[in-house]
């Protein structure tokens, strides 16, 4: 494959105190593709995701060894964490819209990064909401409380909020686990559209979802990568027995 590598992870070991959550992980994440991280609870996939935008920094007693190269630069040595998080956005499992208006939620990112012009903010808010397929539903009530939206709408608002800071990579931590099937399909459609312009890494517990939306799949077990490759290979032609067992639902 000749695709550009967005993230290059080498010998990554992450530990909480004495507990090793990730062990010697090596991975390439390809630009403008969707990479799905699957595995049973506690296997380290969320921990891995949060090393990519350094959200793990918030955890006390965390130890990170190895290298995480983003566009060739090590994000754990001399990389400005604010710049990193602007480029690598994140959508969380539980929608965490701010208790503000819809407009202010989307404008939050651009504002903290110094954009003051009302005209520019209006434009950014509209564009971001369109990218998150939410504009038509909320354009007449941008000043309403964001918490009045439905769960699915809130999650798309979180996505719009990420879009507003014009990231390069979007990380998603089980973005649909709290949503109904219709909202889930909407988010999945969005993921497929967004990969034209963004590199997406998604953690999911839902096998069908991984199969539906991703180009590459990585199977984690007990802090290690068991198998990774194109989603087709992982799902239809797994090499490791444990992968096959997990995918067919025999454990996990």
């Amino acid at each position: 494959m000749s695709e550009a590598v967005k993230f290059n992870i080498r010998d990554l070991t992450v530990s909480y105190g004495n507990f090793k959550a990730l062990h010697n992980v090596n991975m390439d994440i390809i630009e403008n593709k969707v990479t799905a991280l699957i595995g049973p609870s506690g296997c380290g996939k969320s921990t891995f995701l949060k090393t990519l935008n350094r959200m793990n920094d918030l955890v006390p007693n965390i130890g990170i060894e190895g290298r995480v190269l983003y566009d060739g630069k090590d994000i754990y040595s001399g990389y400005d964490v604010i710049t990193l998080r602007k480029q690598v956005g994140m959508v969380f499992q539980a929608s965490n819209v701010f208790p503000m208006s819809i407009y202010n939620n989307v404008a939050y990112g651009p504002r903290i990064h110094g954009i003051k012009s009302k005209k520019r903010l209006d434009h950014i808010v509209e564009e971001s909401l369109k990218k998150a397929a939410l504009w038509d539903e909320v354009k007449d009530r941008l000043n309403k409380d964001a918490l009045s939206l439905s769960g699915g709408q809130q999650q798309r608002l979180c996505l719009a909020r990420v879009m507003a800071v014009e990231p390069d990579v979007v990380l998603m931590d089980e973005p649909t686990s709290a949503l109904d099937p219709v909202s889930t399909v909407q988010i999945e459609d969005l993921i497929r559209e967004l990969k034209e312009h963004y590199t997406i890494v998604i953690v999911t517990h839902n096998m069908q979802q991984a199969a539906r939306v991703s180009d590459f799949t990585v199977f984690f077990l007990n802090g290690e990568i068991v198998e990774m490759g194109s989603t087709e290979d992982i799902f239809y032609n797994p090499k490791d027995k444990r992968t096959e067992e997990y995918i067919t639902g025999r454990f996990g």
Binding site: N53, M55, L58, I82, T83, L84, R85, K86, G89, M90, F92, A94, N96, V97, F98, P99, M100, Y108, G109, R111, I112, H113, C158, R161, V162, V165
Partner: peptide, 27 residues
């Protein structure tokens, strides 16, 4: 104030102080 607000703000590239003054205190 829910931890999620803080995480969301930081993950958008806000500094600790911006997060405190623009999200946590208003909430």
């Amino acid at each position: 104030v829910p931890k999620g607000y803080k995480e969301a703000s930081l993950s958008l590239g806000a500094s600790k102080w911006q997060t405190i003054f623009k999200v946590i205190l208003p909430a």
